[in-house]
C-alpha cells in the first residue's frame, strides 16, 4: 500500500491522537456512559487503520509494531479470564469488588445521577481488559492483511 498525499498525512497528524484519546475515554467510562470495551477498542482500531492507510504499510511499520500488539491481545484475554475466575469463591464471574470500599468499590448513588468513576467493582477492569484485546485484535488484523497485500503485489510484478 503506497502512502497517500501530503494533505491526507497532515490531517491524519492532527486527528489521530484525538481519535485514540476518545477511544480510551469510551473504554474507561464504560460503566457510566454508553459504550464499553468493544466499542472503544473499535474506535482505537479505526485510528490504527487511518494511520496505516495514510502512511502506507512500509512507513507505518516504524510506529505500529505487530508483535507488541499481539502481546497485548493475549494479555487482555488472560486478564479477562483471570478476573472471571477471581470471583470463583461464590460463582464464576462474580463481581467481588463491588460495594467493598476498595478499588472501584464505592456504592453507586441510586437513581438518575451522572455517576462516580470509582464504582462498578470488577466491571471497569473487565472493560479495560476487553478494550485492550479488541484494539490490538483490530490492529493485528489490519497490519497482517496490509503486509499480505504488499507481498502479493510484489509477487505479481516480478
Amino acid at each position: 500500500m503506497k502512502e497517500m498525499s501530503r494533505i491526507v498525512k497532515t490531517v491524519t497528524n492532527f486527528v489521530y491522537g484525538f481519535i485514540i484519546i476518545f477511544g480510551f475515554y469510551i473504554i474507561a467510562h464504560g460503566h457510566l456512559t454508553p459504550g464499553g470495551g468493544f466499542q472503544g477498542g473499535a474506535v482505537v482500531g479505526s485510528a490504527f487503520a487511518l494511520l496505516l492507510i495514510s502512511y502506507g504499510s512500509l512507513n507505518s511499520k516504524k510506529f505500529l509494531k505487530k508483535d507488541i500488539l499481539s502481546l497485548f491481545e493475549g494479555f487482555g484475554l488472560i486478564l479477562f479470564i483471570v478476573l472471571g475466575f477471581s470471583g470463583l469463591g461464590i460463582t464464576f464471574f462474580y463481581n467481588f469488588l463491588a460495594n467493598s470500599g476498595g478499588w472501584f468499590g464505592n456504592a453507586a448513588v441510586i437513581g438518575v445521577n451522572p455517576g462516580n468513576m470509582n464504582t462498578g467493582g470488577v466491571i471497569p477492569l473487565m472493560n479495560i481488559a476487553v478494550g485492550l484485546e479488541v484494539l490490538s485484535a483490530f490492529g493485528v488484523i489490519v497490519l497482517t492483511m496490509a503486509s499480505a497485500a504488499e507481498f502479493t503485489k510484489k509477487k505479481e510484478n516480478s
Partner: peptide, 9 residues
C-alpha cells in the same frame, strides 16, 4: 453491581 450503566452491568 455499583455501575450506573445497566447495559454494561
Amino acid at each position: 453491581t455499583g455501575a450506573n450503566n445497566v447495559v454494561t452491568s
